[in-house]
């Protein structure tokens, strides 16, 4: 990646979110959305403010990174709509990065202790409602992060199966909410993805894709579950 390439990172898959701007790999601005679930209202202003704080113009941006899920249906779509539209105007690529990768990055940047730890199995968990969590597993050796389990929907009691022989740590909304039902150590805080982590995760896991991705190539969103097929009338509402 070009040393001074400007990367815009967008996150809106969960309770928080926002936009971040990197120049090269250096974080220049991060504008989190503080109000809960207000992506529809606040994401576009966050993008505007992040660009302004980083002192870059929209046309200077080389690529957009966006969380491709799994996560909240509407939240993911708001983020993708903003990312793809911004990229469409400026004819630049959009790179999708998994929510689990972004969660690990959030944990690593918020918890200094982990930076010096030995081998540790990181288990990011998202609260998928309906008594289930979406989880994955990664091996962290202090410098490298390697995925060991693909994303899967499990009940909290099953989370222990994702861990290998190494010491494990479950974290994220799914671990925090169900901490009483999880046999693994659970991180004390409710780790939520912030926009810079989406960018950092892409730098770690997809460093080569930024300029290999064609402008206009679509990002495929990943949802927790297949579509809930209830019509408006069946839901008792109207349009």
């Amino acid at each position: 990646m070009n040393a001074d390439a400007v990367i815009l990172a967008i996150e809106s898959s969960g309770e928080s979110g926002g936009a971040a701007v990197f120049v090269g790999r250096e974080l220049r601005a991060e504008v989190p959305i503080s109000a809960r679930r207000s992506h529809g209202q606040n994401l576009v202003p966050a993008i505007r403010d992040a660009l302004a704080q980083a002192k870059v113009r929209g046309e200077d941006v080389s690529a957009v990174v966006v969380n491709e899920g799994p996560g909240s249906y509407t939240g993911l779509r708001v983020g993708l709509a903003a990312a793809e539209t911004f990229a469409f105007v400026h004819k630049i690529p959009v790179v999708g990065i998994g929510a689990m990768e972004a969660m690990c990055e959030e944990l690593l940047r918020s918890d200094a202790l982990l930076k010096s730890s030995g081998a540790l199995c990181l288990i990011p968990c998202l609260d998928a409602r309906q008594d289930e969590v979406m989880a994955a597993a990664f091996l962290w050796d202090g410098t490298k992060l390697t995925r060991t389990q693909h994303d899967m929907l499990v009940i909290p009691e099953q989370l222990g199966r994702l861990a290998g022989k190494d010491e494990a740590l479950a974290f994220g909304s799914g671990a925090f909410v169900y901490r009483g039902r999880i046999s693994l150590p659970v991180h004390a805080e409710n780790v939520e993805i912030l926009p810079a982590s989406v960018g950092l995760a892409a730098f770690r896991h997809k460093p080569d894709t930024f300029f290999e991705t064609a402008p206009g190539a679509r990002v495929q969103l990943r949802y927790f579950r297949p579509v809930m097929a209830k019509t408006i009338v069946e839901r008792g509402g109207s349009v």
Binding site: G40, V44, G58, Y73, R77, A82, T85, V89
Partner: peptide, 16 residues
């Protein structure tokens, strides 16, 4: 959820 797709696209177009 439907409104938000179009509204976010429209606002992002206006910004960009």
């Amino acid at each position: 959820g439907a409104l938000l797709v179009g509204l976010t696209t429209g606002k992002t177009l206006a910004l960009a």
